[in-house]
């Protein structure tokens, strides 16, 4: 039922990168036979979930687990290899760039590094004007100007500074400007990829407050990506935990922090540093994260899991619904043993 009103829905989204190089790079001679080897990075491997209007869904997981790839695929920056992406119940993963244009202004992205994502040779004013003019052909100059100062005030940058260049601002101010740029076209849906990871905590608090305020005032829906679990706990409605391109667990934020179910979620949360906790007892995992080039068979987590048994090594666990909103992909949880 709730799924019907979802703003965004992902069904079995797969995104792989072929990094084999040219045809000649792929050919090898072995035992008198020519073989062709392809190297595929399996970044996102069949992810399904939906995002409700007005919520903040956070994606967490360790470096390389596919968070940014998933975000870019959702926004249509990468075409998925398979699966479907629906926005307001309409498929958007197979649209022409012309047809996609209508969605581009509804969906905006904020990046981790405000320095790299702002054009150093453009004043703040031009940076902010550009998307409005692009998406509203024929808009009057005074309307644009008004919009620029309105949004600058909203993000807490004095409109008097509109003629300045990015290098004249601090990191926190630059991130405010990239948030402003995303808000210029009145989006409904904002993907924020590590928007506060490069900032100091006192500045991070300012930016998180700004993002929460903007959400409230403009009824925004967020897909929030970060590896910082204390940030996630603070701002999320629901949390999705990824490991090697798969979804391990998806649950309301409160639940995931109070009763994590998947063995990986448990280990991840136990390792988060806590202010003033002496002798932190974290769950030690075996081995290291395998590369997404050679995905382990069965459950992708089985080699590191403290509870893996035979079934885990061969059969891929599917995400099962536990108590309604919580979904977990683990055989042992499904069997009621964890």
């Amino acid at each position: 039922m709730a799924e019907q009103t979802a703003l965004l829905e992902l069904v079995n989204v797969v995104k792989h990168f072929d990094i084999s190089g040219t045809f000649l790079d792929q050919i090898t001679f072995k035992a008198g036979r020519i073989t062709r080897n392809r190297t595929i990075v399996r970044a996102v491997n069949g992810i399904s979930f939906s995002i409700q209007r007005g919520e903040t869904l956070s994606i967490v997981g360790e470096s390389g687990c596919g968070k940014s790839t998933l975000a870019r695929t959702v926004l249509g920056l990468y075409p998925p290899n398979s699966g479907r992406i629906l926005y307001g119940a309409k498929r958007i993963d197979n649209l022409s760039s012309q047809a996609m244009l209508a969605y581009r202004s509804k969906m905006q992205m904020i990046f981790q590094d405000p320095y790299a994502s702002l054009n150093p040779r453009m004043t703040v004013k031009r940076t902010l004007e550009e998307p409005v003019k692009y998406h509203n052909k024929g808009i009057g100059a005074s309307a644009v100007e008004e919009k620029v100062s309105e949004v600058m005030r909203l993000v807490g940058v004095d409109p008097k500074w509109a003629e300045r260049y990015p290098h004249e601002f601090s990191g926190g101010q630059r991130q405010r400007i990239s948030i402003a740029r995303a808000l210029m076209v009145d989006p409904e849906f904002v993907v924020a990829d590590e928007p506060v990871s490069a900032l100091d905590v006192s500045i991070q608090a300012q930016i998180l407050n700004l993002l929460m305020d903007a959400q409230e005032q403009r009824k925004l829906t967020y897909l929030f990506i970060t590896h910082d679990l204390s940030v996630v706990r603070h701002i999320s409605t629901r949390v999705a935990v990824m490991y090697l391109g798969m979804l391990c667990e998806l649950a309301p934020a409160k639940e995931i922090f109070s009763t994590p179910r998947h063995p990986y979620t448990k280990a991840l949360l136990s390792a988060v540093p806590k202010l003033g906790a002496k002798d932190p007892n974290y769950i030690r995992l075996n081995g290291e994260v395998p590369t997404p080039i050679n995905l382990p068979p069965g459950c992708v987590f089985h080699g590191r899991c403290n509870y893996a048994d035979k079934r885990c090594k061969t059969e891929i666990p599917i995400t099962t619904k536990l108590s309604e909103p919580t979904r977990v992909a683990c055989h042992r949880v499904e069997e009621g043993k964890l």
Partner: peptide, 24 residues
């Protein structure tokens, strides 16, 4: 005091964080 209270863990989830105005 400001630094510790601006940590997201310091306050109730979803509430506004205590921020230190300005920057270093």
């Amino acid at each position: 005091i400001g630094l510790i209270n601006s940590l997201p863990g310091a306050r109730k989830a979803g509430s506004r964080l205590t921020q230190i105005p300005g920057m270093m």
